[in-house]
Write a protein that binds this DNA or RNA. Structure first.
Lengths: 226, 226
DNA sequence: CACTCTAACGGCACTCCGTGCCACAGAACA
DNA sequence: TGTTCTGTGGCACGGAGTGCCGTTAGAGTG
């Protein structure tokens, strides 16, 4: 799909490395001297590139501390696209959600700094909320396409999408509150899977109704036998 | 609590009217010539005030088209604070969510324009997402405080909070898709209440009790047939 | 090796957002 | 009537984000 694009231009470092340097510079500067007191010039200078180059890698100052959400969204879409039609929807949803954990946790050190920043800087909080919104919309869209023949399919899709994303965030939050060990991915996945029982995807059998039907059948049988 | 603050300063119009003029000017200008091509100077000039005054009424350009979310958040908090302890949590959640509909729909005309703008302008979409995030956090916080003795209480709170907010938005979206009649509040409430069956708040039916009832019915039948 | 082509880079200039500061006007109050 | 209080407008400033363009390092070609 994507042939190895050769590195060109004056710098010897590839694009990925420049981006990484900018992220680390941004995270360190934001943490050290605050978000508002850090200019884009500061970040670019700390990473050894020009200010103009910064905006070629990030849409804005707020994006400098974000993981690559485009990749995360693409992974989720791929899970839905390649899932076998007979696989239960709950399973697909769980697999899709799990693929995003390592995007957040691949570098635990950076992850913790990032969480701290996102937690206390309003601009970064809002930015993260906007990204969460995109994840939620993607889940909802994919679910709605698969719940067309179910009662309240759109509502179920909206609720399930929101629930999945919320559980994902809750798992990350829980991991962070527990100290943030390096093997957070597995812990997050285990916690995240508990959401399966809370999703309104499968019609829960109405046991009350089942019991009444059995009782009625028994009474009917009773009359017959008399 | 808040005594009627007298209107002061040079202008004869009160604060509420200045704000309303700014909102209508912003909505009209954004709709007519686009969000990016409308400067704050344009809005202020159209409303007949200085540019500096605009920023005394709104934190930024994106807030000029938002309803008063602080009021909405306050209403929700009040419902939770004044709810009777024995009221089922589902009922409290539904009541809290319903109080916000008229905040969005009080003026259907403005509501439709606002929805259209928020839908197509990325900056306004992100802003709305950030506000939705605050609603979700509030619901989650209030729910978590009432689910401390339940299995996976935090997760249930996070999932339920997200689900309620998602259902709220879905109701508004549905109302808009159906043409946006003037009596949208009731329609939204009715649709919104359907989310109750999808919330992981109530414990699953007691299967042990169901089994006992079946056993009793069987024994009764057994005695009769003997 | 010499040449061309290409993509990334850096710098400059520009618009606009958001804010701190200050002077001013008009209504309330003593 | 004078004082105070509060909302207002003007001005200037820093910083974000963008369009434009010359420059440069590497890849490909002969």
């Amino acid at each position: 799909m994507s042939p190895v694009t050769p590195r060109r231009g004056r710098s010897a470092a590839g694009r990925a490395e420049v981006r990484r340097d900018l992220v680390t510079a941004a995270v360190d500067l934001f943490t050290a001297q605050g978000y508002d007191d850090t200019t884009v010039d500061d970040i670019a200078a700390a990473a050894g590139v020009g200010r103009r180059t910064f905006f070629r890698y990030f849409k804005g100052k707020e994006d400098a501390v974000s993981p690559d959400h485009e990749r995360g969204l693409a992974r989720i879409a791929e899970v839905f696209a390649t899932a076998h039609p007979t696989e239960p929807l709950v399973s697909v949803v769980l697999r899709a959600g799990e693929t995003v954990f390592d995007l957040y946790l691949s570098d635990p050190e950076t992850a913790r700094k990032r969480f701290a920043l996102v937690h206390e800087v309003p601009a970064l909080r809002d930015r993260e909320a906007a990204m969460v919104h995109r994840y939620r919309r993607l889940f909802t869209k994919e679910l709605a396409a698969r719940l067309t023949d179910v009662d309240d399919g759109d509502l179920r899709a909206a609720v399930t999408g929101a629930a999945v994303v919320a559980a994902h965030n809750q798992a990350l939050r829980r991991w962070l509150a527990d100290g943030g060990t390096s093997d957070g991915t597995e812990a997050c996945r285990a916690y995240f899977r508990r959401v399966a029982a809370m999703l309104p995807l499968e019609q829960a059998p109405d046991l009350e109704q089942v019991a009444r039907r059995l009782e009625r059948a028994a009474r009917s049988l009773e009359r017959r036998t008399n």
